[in-house]
Design a protein around this nucleic acid. Structure first.
Lengths: 206, 206
DNA sequence: GCGAACATACATACTGGTTGGTATGTTAAT
DNA sequence: ATTAACATACCAACCAGTATGTATGTTCGC
């Protein structure tokens, strides 16, 4: 009857699963709802994925990882003053966040980490991989800033990077409980204050 | 047969529900497991609580709120240099955290916020109340520090307080994905670095 | 002081709904 | 003709919630 397209079927399932998981979490995610929203049948789903867990793993590996890559890793790789690049990236991301309703739904990566990391090693290790790539992007731009004399060298770039990611997730998490724009803006303001203290005195003058 | 003690029954249910929710989240929390762990029957549970949701609300109002109170609000009310009080409180809390297996299970308040705030206004508003009390304790000590000349006055104490809570929750959340002690220590180190930048130049010299 | 009347505090068995997963088919592509 | 790609019907497990019954405490008339 209809023409077959296994790649599209698989892609549709991943995208729908991503949305469903983003909205209600992995354990509460219903395969029946995913199937209903895609028009795919259960037979097709279990042809492409061994079980619900493997579908979840694929969402982390393929959808969420790509998401972090284009929203954070690539922008953080741009040229220019290191601290400015970070602040610009955060600003851009926070604008996309409003558009994606992230204020209410939270960060898809962190949501999954909070729910699944303590109870499923498969999720935990996959999520860790994505976090490490994200933190790596911060570490690289900070180290470059240190080499260029824009960022203080008395601080460990890797630790700063880890803290910045933690603080960002913390801010997103707080906003989830109280989704007011000015609330989020106030938090980011303080984060920017912190980032400015990372500059060398020479860079601050400029 | 056995003597009755409704207060104890209710208290046992709340405590067991708190643990169950802490471990698997509210929606995955099983009433049958809670009943099994307490030895209370379903009839008794539904005598004390209207339904599962009301049990969850009571856990926030009575168990979790008290938890935050004694771990954060009271210690932050102590006398002494404001920044030192904050750092000491964080240190003490992080030690309790290791003891309570919080590295693996996360912060019970934030876990619930992440899971329930976007989908249940009853949870959201109750959780917000606790967060506001927690942040209020930070705000008070910071404002006191400002009055005493120990904390910079060019910064808004309330915004700082909100960011510190967000950052703390962010750190706990990250550790949940990678529960290594040195990982957590590195994060807190950077947070302390930030807290030190809150001091006035005069206070830094001392 | 004693017992009927009533309310509180439980206990047990069950129900309807949802879940992930599977067994068994059928159809389209190579 | 073979196999990948689906489709359908069904199942056992678990879930929150309820109907119904029982035992313990308390109140109050007398």
């Amino acid at each position: 009857m209809t023409t077959r397209d296994p790649d599209k079927t698989r892609h549709d399932l991943l995208e729908a699963a991503f949305q469903e998981i983003w909205e209600v979490g992995f354990r509460a995610a219903s395969l029946d709802r995913i199937l209903k929203s895609t028009g795919v049948t259960k037979g097709a789903l279990y042809h492409h994925f061994k079980n619900k867990t493997e579908l979840g793993y694929a969402v982390v590996d393929e959808v969420i990882a790509g998401w972090i890559q284009e929203r954070w890793v690539q922008p953080l790789g741009r040229e220019g003053d290191a601290v400015d690049v970070i602040k610009d990236t955060v600003r851009t991301a926070s604008q996309s966040a409003v558009h994606d309703d992230m204020m209410a739904k939270g960060c898809p990566l962190n949501n999954l980490a909070q729910e699944m990391s303590p109870i499923d090693e498969g999720f935990r290790s996959r999520i860790e991989t994505v976090f490490l790539r994200w933190m790596g992007a911060f570490t690289r731009v900070l180290k470059r800033g240190q080499e260029e004399g824009a960022v203080r060298t008395d601080l460990d770039a890797e630790h700063i990077a880890q803290f910045v990611v933690a603080a960002l997730e913390g801010v997103v998490g707080m906003v989830k409980n109280n989704p007011k724009v000015e609330f989020a803006a106030g938090h980011l303001e303080v984060l920017f204050l912190f980032l400015d203290t990372m500059r060398t005195p020479a860079a601050q003058a400029a």
